[in-house]
């Protein structure tokens, strides 16, 4: 792999994602509405709660909207990761995925470039969301806005790679509705995105353990601490390891020696 070629390829993929984003602003804002609805409506319902008890990384009592903000950032990454990875394979994107995979570069590089570009667009959404949240009085320290970037990139990669991995193995996930029901919702709700883990434990020990095993919990905590300029070693390490694992399996899943989606008579069964 020549470095210049690789750079040109990555630039191309990134440019394409950006152009798609520019050409689909409606979709971009639609995707932004989802976390905003949670922030404005769901969190507002809990406003009367006298602040969420102090748990790290918080230094003082925080309102519920401040607590769920990192969870909502996770939600943006989750939807984007699943959407971009799965739409790559299903729907209309099938063709462009084939075009990508027949490019003369190592497949892992192509997939990673694609995932990273997707994360880039998700980052834009995150910052627009954070800007709106700022006016809603959710104001993490300034440094947090920078420290959160690596946490978001790793989390985004993890979720994108998970989507990619699922897409290459689970044939039942035919459409996005299935992904919503069986991946996104369980991951989002059984995590620390909406409630602190100790709160979850109060209501159900089982759910607490499930949340602990949920990589999304660790991604959210990683992002939560980073947003307050703190590094949560445990969450960061788990997120990173999950990222590497999902990436490895996803790349393996797309290995031509295994066959690119050799199922149900292949992606283009109509010969």
């Amino acid at each position: 792999m020549k470095l210049k070629h690789a750079a040109s390829c990555f630039r191309g993929i990134l440019a394409r994602e950006s152009l798609r984003f520019l050409n689909q602003r409606a979709r971009f804002f639609a995707a932004l509405v989802r976390p905003l609805v949670w922030l404005f409506i769901f969190a507002a319902g809990f406003r009367s709660v006298l602040g969420v008890s102090i748990i790290p990384p918080y230094q003082t009592y925080v309102l519920y909207e401040e607590y769920i903000t990192p969870g909502l950032l996770g939600m943006i990454m989750l939807f984007n990761g699943m959407q971009s990875s799965l739409s790559m394979v299903y729907d209309r994107e099938m063709g462009s995925m084939r075009l990508l995979l027949v490019s003369p570069l190592p497949r892992w590089f192509l997939l990673l470039s694609k995932l990273l570009s997707g994360v880039g667009v998700a980052l834009l959404q995150v910052y627009v969301f954070l800007l709106i949240a700022w006016f809603w009085e959710v104001r993490p320290p300034v440094a947090g806005y920078f420290f959160v970037i690596p946490a978001l990139i790793i989390s985004g990669l993890m979720l994108g790679a998970l989507g990619l991995m699922l897409s290459s193995f689970v044939t039942q996930l035919e459409n996005f509705a299935g992904v919503m029901n069986f991946v996104i919702f369980p991951m989002f709700f059984a995590s620390s995105a909406l409630y602190p883990l100790w709160r979850v434990r109060d209501s159900s020990e089982a759910l607490y353990w499930i949340a602990n095993l949920n990589p999304f919990t660790h991604a959210v905590e990683f992002v939560r601490f980073a947003l307050y300029s703190e590094f949560n070693w445990q969450a960061g390490l788990i997120t990173l390891l999950c990222t590497l694992f999902f990436l490895a399996v996803a790349i393996w899943g797309y290995d031509p020696l295994r066959g690119f989606l050799p199922r149900k008579g292949g992606p283009a069964a109509s010969n």
Binding site: A15, R16, L19, L99, S103, P104, A268
Partner: peptide, 26 residues
């Protein structure tokens, strides 16, 4: 390759599609 199914990116212009391909091929 010209695939059986269209592989052009429908959200991009003709030129953007071609430029994307050039990037992929370095």
């Amino acid at each position: 390759v010209v695939f059986q199914r269209p592989t052009l990116d429908r959200d991009l212009t003709v030129k953007q599609n071609l430029r994307y391909f050039c990037n992929l091929h370095g």
